[in-house]
């Protein structure tokens, strides 16, 4: 059992996301993370789903996904060279001068950006892999994380290989 990153190319139509996510819950799979958006093809969307399962379970879920009429292509990126990123925004308490500069230092080390500065809070934005975001969150805890929002992971194969239609 390990996390798998599935890249799913779908028709950009109403209800597609619920067909896909419904299939996961119906077949007893938990979705660890989910990201959806339009893509290079105007009438398609790309969904990236991270889920945990053994090889047979993942194979079954991919085959079931493939049976959905609106699913054009399903790929498991897990065992390939790939780039994966997640974006997070963290609203952290920064009401004293000391903590404020410490937080900004941490942000710099993590290459996180300050995207909002209030009188009592800072909002940091960070992109990276899951571990990096987790690490930043852990460090910021001591100052008080008021709110955290993550996009869900997106992934792409390295090199010229792509996840394209023609399944």
């Amino acid at each position: 059992m390990k996390p798998h990153t599935l890249s799913i190319l779908v028709e950009n139509r109403a209800g597609v996301l619920s067909r896909v996510t419904g299939l996961f819950s119906r077949r007893g799979f938990n979705i660890e993370s989910l990201a959806v958006g339009t893509c290079e093809e105007p009438e398609m969307s790309r969904i990236t789903i991270v889920c945990i399962g053994d090889d047979a379970q993942i194979e079954q879920v991919m085959k079931q996904l493939n049976k959905l009429i609106d699913v054009i292509k399903v790929s498991d990126l897990t065992d390939n060279e790939r780039v994966e990123r997640e974006l997070a925004m963290i609203k952290v308490t920064a009401d004293s001068g000391g903590s404020r500069s410490e937080i900004m230092q941490i942000a710099q080390i993590f290459r996180a950006q300050v995207v909002d500065m209030g009188t009592k809070t800072l909002v940091l934005q960070i992109a990276g892999n899951t571990k990096k975001i987790d690490a930043l969150e852990t460090l910021l805890r001591q100052y008080g994380v008021k709110e955290l929002v993550r996009t869900g992971k997106i992934g792409m194969l390295r090199g010229s290989k792509t996840v394209k239609s023609g399944k």
């Binding site: 009429i69 023609g166 399944k167």
Partner: peptide, 8 residues
């Protein structure tokens, strides 16, 4: 013919 790229 019906052509559905997600159904072959």
């Amino acid at each position: 013919t019906v052509l559905l790229r997600g159904y072959q």
